[in-house]
């Protein structure tokens, strides 16, 4: 570890995991929130850093919209999602006066805010910091990796849907991971199939198998497939704790098993 990392707001953060995808709307924010909830239920202290500045989704998904961040001596106090303060969250969503306001920022301004999010948030003691990112490989990603690098090794969870159009973008994201020196913990395939609630027929709305094939091709672990689950969408719309409230639903076992793999793998891979 570098000297600068010994002190400051990030000093007591154990493991850092970025959730990435080259493709939009594949479920990065969904996986970020569900991973955080599952880690929390495993007794971990979790921070979520939302660096999607144009389209922050996490506040709604954790029912924290409209909350405010406060200042303290060591910087911004993140928003605590639960009573026990086991999940803390920082998002540009908390800094906007009007939720419909567009954040029309070019790169340099985004970079500055992301640096602040990393350095000036009083994260305190965290077992995991989960970083939700916008799609792509641009300013936000470079700024995040640059700012977090001293606190080091950075893990990456790469999310894709099964379709070729998505897998194509995600291949490029894996190249980014390699170039940026991220430890790819694995690929998650999301929206894999839909089981009709009326007749139990499974339809592969967004095709099938692309995630596993990609992981195999790229030589990185495949962590699992999460089916399309309307209960998950609904739970996210209402900001509910899916992992606690919907253990019977189709997406639950997959999400839990992915979180388990992260829990067992991450400490060894992110040393």
């Amino acid at each position: 570890m570098e000297a600068a990392a010994e002190t400051g707001n990030m000093a007591s953060v154990q493991h850092i995991i970025l959730v990435l995808s080259g493709k939009g709307g594949v479920g990065k924010s969904t996986i970020s929130t569900q991973l955080a909830l599952a880690l929390r239920h495993a007794g971990k202290k979790v921070g979520i850093l939302d660096v999607d500045l144009c389209g922050p989704s996490i506040p709604r998904m954790l029912r924290a919209q409209g909350r405010a961040v406060h200042q303290c001596d060591s910087g911004w106090v993140p928003v605590y999602v639960d009573q026990e303060q086991s999940i803390s969250l920082m998002s540009v969503g908390f800094l906007l006066e009007n939720p419909d306001e567009a954040v029309v920022w070019r790169g340099p301004k985004k970079n500055a805010l992301i640096r602040q999010f990393v350095c000036d948030v009083a994260w305190g003691q965290l077992d995991y910091l989960v970083v939700d990112t916008p799609p792509g490989t641009s300013d936000e990603h470079m700024a995040t990796v640059d700012a977090l690098r001293p606190y080091g090794p950075l893990g990456a969870l790469v999310v894709t849907t099964p379709q070729a159009v998505s897998v194509g973008d995600v291949r490029r994201e894996l190249t980014f991971c390699r170039k940026a020196g991220l430890q790819v913990l694995g690929v998650v395939e999301n929206m894999s199939g839909f089981v009709c609630p009326h007749c139990a027929e499974c339809t592969h709305v967004f095709s099938r198998g692309g995630g596993e094939e990609l992981a195999c091709h790229a030589g990185v672990p495949f962590l699992g497939s999460v089916p399309l689950d309307p209960e998950l969408t609904r739970s996210l719309e209402e900001g509910r704790d899916f992992i606690r409230e919907f253990p019977e639903s189709p997406a639950f076992p997959a999400l839990l098993s992915i979180a388990q793999k992260v829990l067992t793998e991450a400490p060894a891979r992110l040393l």
Partner: peptide
């Protein structure tokens, strides 16, 4: 909406909650 190719019934995978 999603129309099941087998039973032709509708499902809302991404429900319009608002």
């Amino acid at each position: 909406v999603f129309i099941c190719p087998k039973c032709k019934k509708e499902s809302q995978i991404f429900p319009p909650t608002t």
